[in-house]
Design a protein around this nucleic acid. Sequence first.
DNA 1: CCAAATGTGTTGGATATACAACATATCTCT
DNA 2: AGAGATATGTTGTATATCCAACACATTTGG
Lengths: 185, 185
Amino acid sequence: MTQPKTDPRILRTRKLIMDSFIALSSKKEFKDITIKDITSEAMINRATFYYHFEDIYDLLDKALSEVLFINLNCQTYEDSDLNEETLVNLFKAITDFQLSLSNRCHRGYEDTIARIIRDQLEVIFLRMLERERPKVDIEQLKVPATMLSWGLYGASVEWGRNQSVTPEKYIKSVGPFLQGGLVRS
Amino acid sequence: MTQPKTDPRILRTRKLIMDSFIALSSKKEFKDITIKDITSEAMINRATFYYHFEDIYDLLDKALSEVLFINLNCQTYEDSDLNEETLVNLFKAITDFQLSLSNRCHRGYEDTIARIIRDQLEVIFLRMLERERPKVDIEQLKVPATMLSWGLYGASVEWGRNQSVTPEKYIKSVGPFLQGGLVRS
DNA sequence: CCAAATGTGTTGGATATACAACATATCTCT
DNA sequence: AGAGATATGTTGTATATCCAACACATTTGG
């Protein structure tokens, strides 16, 4: 699928902004990062920042999505079946992402992070369900995809509260309950 | 001395071009490098290349000057006296630069390289002579600066033909002959 | 030798980015 | 509490970079 080509300047500038934001995030809490910090680090003009992003929250959204996208390594799942192994890998990626974030102290933005994780999971599950049920209307697949994304996210939150077992062990314990019409092992 | 600020886009684009050119130079001989190679590697438009450089020879000139400038670490000499130690350091830098080039097989461009080396040396010597003789007219200092730059360059060529001793040892042997009104030890 | 492919150099118009200026908001320090 | 410093968000204008198109030059392969 060939998509419309993006102007290389846009790609370069967005990368400068994203990289600067991520670099700053490893030094300061989100609430202490200013637009001025980012534009100085990236060596771009403030107006250029606003050309690309609404505000710093818009950047946070997109930066987190991108980091999660990389963490999930979404292409890996493009040919995967919806099975126990897949669930374990996705769960591990989510918990890794969340652990990497707690290093950055993103307190106060848990809702944003949660939504981003669920959104990405939903896309992945929806694609898998489409492949497994090509004749079913996509609208009907969204509900199970939503349920799976909320479910897996919820499990990661519960695991985060009590990290007494590894993420793999934790999620395996619920695998058998999902088999049947929805999950194949 | 504050100089007019250069547009950040110009700085970025020039760096992209220079870095790409240097990267390509470590893989291919100069004569096999095309404008297309450079603009693809740098991910910039061909028209942008021509906005910054006349042609590939202009880029070679400027790239070599920059690499030599870095090799020479010219700022080091801004406060230096024109003495034996300085001559040894300059000589070492030139021979290092030439050795690094022979890795890149820049055959056929020795004249360009020679001129660049002499030009940079002349600037350095001229500044040193100006500092040592502030009351002398700058026009009168150019001849000794030219002679020193040609001389040091000539010595590096001779050393290159017969690298039986280290550059330091080689150039030290001519140091005492230059002392007197021109060089202080 | 020649056709096809590739590269070069240029140009006009479009777009992305820079700058300076401005009004307003927020933060810091006394 | 308030003055001063700093940051934000916006806008009109200028400049750097992109693109497509073109004519021409050079290289490649049969």
